[in-house]
Computed example of a mutant assay.
Amino acid sequence: MLVFDLDDTLYLERDFAFSGYVSVGDWVQEQYGLTGFEPQCRKLFEDGERRQVFNRASEAIGLEPSQDLILRLVDVYRNHPPSIHLCDDVQRFFAQRVGPFGLITDGPEQMQRNKISALGLEAYLAHICPTGAWPTGYGKPHPRSYEMMEDAAASGQMMVYVADNPAKDFVTPKARGWRTVQINRPGRVHAPEAPDDLHMADCVINSFDDLDDVLAG
């Protein structure tokens, strides 16, 4: 069974970030009458900032980045209805194939489900596992989500995980005998280099257009 990651695998995570910045910027303007929050966030992201985007953007437009404010901004960001779309190669792939397919994705459950809904993935994926539905500690590389997919697959079926982040995506399925494929998209958020051989995918592709050839090899 083919199982996919979500962020930077089926769509670009940066698109979700930019969509969220628009929603947060609109909220800031509505609450405080201040403009410019969204472009500040976007510039910080483009400059490589990930952890202090809202703090620094708030300071840049004259808002005190109190803990309460940052928590509220994060809530707006995580729960906004995202404006995102599947990558073109992913759309071609799903248009030409019949599953069942699976999905394993980390992150707050509602945020990930909002993405899944916005991308229309329920039409393609029979088995969806947002690890954020479970207590802390069950995200990748914990084996629980992979075991769930194995239980859903037909007996003896080859298991394949297609994902982007070698820091956590491949070490567990490799150890369980899955085939692993890293998708290396331009504009990805995470570094594509694996920390060691155990974390490396079996193969690397730049497009889902190459996935059939890799799986047949």
Rank of each mutant, 00 (worst) to 15 (best):
Q91Y: 02
E193S: 03
R176Q: 11
P108N: 08
Y146C: 04
F45S: 13
G48Y: 06
M1C: 08
A123M: 12
T172L: 00
G102L: 06
E59Y: 00
P82A: 08
A216Q: 04
F4N: 03
D169K: 03
R51I: 01
S83P: 00
Q67H: 10
R97M: 02
G107K: 12
Y138A: 04
M1D: 04
L73E: 12
F16A: 05
T9R: 04
S23D: 05
Q112S: 10
A17E: 08
D202V: 12
D88A: 15
P39V: 07
P39L: 05
A191F: 01
D209W: 13
V24G: 01
D89W: 02
R78L: 14
E30D: 13
C87G: 13
Q40P: 02
P100A: 05
L211D: 05
Q91A: 14
K140M: 04
M158C: 03
R72H: 14
R72L: 14
L86N: 08
F54Y: 10
I104H: 08
Q31G: 03
L44F: 01
V3H: 03
E64T: 15
R188A: 15
P100S: 05
A95Y: 10
Y21R: 02
R42A: 10
V74L: 13
V171T: 10
G120S: 12
Y124C: 10
F208K: 10
T105R: 09
D15G: 00
S83T: 15
L44N: 02
D164H: 14
A152Q: 15
L211I: 11
V171Y: 01
E150D: 03
V162R: 02
S19Q: 11
E46R: 05
M159A: 03
C129V: 13
F93K: 03
A167W: 00
D209F: 15
A154S: 11
G217N: 09
E64Y: 10
N165A: 04
T136A: 14
I116H: 13
A133W: 01
P65K: 10
D89V: 06
G62H: 01
S23K: 12
P186Q: 09
R179V: 11
L2E: 01
V162K: 01
H142I: 13
V53E: 07
L198W: 06
C41E: 04
L12V: 07
Q29N: 10
R144I: 09
P141R: 03
D88H: 14
I205V: 10
C129H: 11
A175S: 15
I61D: 03
D88E: 15
C87S: 14
L86F: 13
G25L: 01
E13D: 14
E150S: 09
A95R: 12
